[in-house]
């Protein structure tokens, strides 16, 4: 027979119906808002970095002037081979984002 433990019975109280509804809706709403925020953020980050890389590539191809490079804080030295952007302009890969963007945040299929 299990030992008696009346601590298990103490302070047992049902949450009011209104609170049950509110807290569920509130939590669900916030989770969805945060999820869509990260979706939008993800979209902007990829577009932003995509645009930078494209600009950089275009300038490199057309022989960017030293002054333009300085104005944007871009080194005048030619980029190393490994620093070059991917041909498709992508900057972030999965491993870059896994720390702060988990699969659970991904949009529903």
């Amino acid at each position: 027979m299990e030992d008696q433990n009346n601590f298990k019975k103490v302070y047992e109280k049902e949450a009011p119906e209104k609170l049950r509804e509110h807290s569920l809706k509130n939590a669900q709403g916030s989770v969805k808002t945060v999820r869509s925020f990260f979706d939008v953020l993800d979209l902007y980050i990829s577009k932003f970095f995509g645009a930078i890389i494209h600009t950089f590539k275009d300038n490199s191809n057309s022989g960017i002037s030293a002054n333009n490079g300085l104005a944007f804080g871009i080194s005048q030295e030619a980029p190393d081979e490994e620093d070059k952007a991917e041909p498709d302009g992508k900057f972030l890969d999965e491993s870059d984002t896994e720390d702060w963007y988990s699969d659970s945040d991904a949009p529903k299929e």
């Binding site: 109280k13 939590a27 669900q28 659970s104």
Partner: peptide, 24 residues
């Protein structure tokens, strides 16, 4: 699956427990 059903289940399992603790 990010399904609301599972979300609601966890919520309904814990709402009374969390409320009881908070009020105590």
């Amino acid at each position: 699956k990010q399904s609301d059903t599972y979300f609601q289940m966890l919520h309904s399992r814990y709402i009374n427990k969390v409320y009881s603790k908070a009020i105590s």
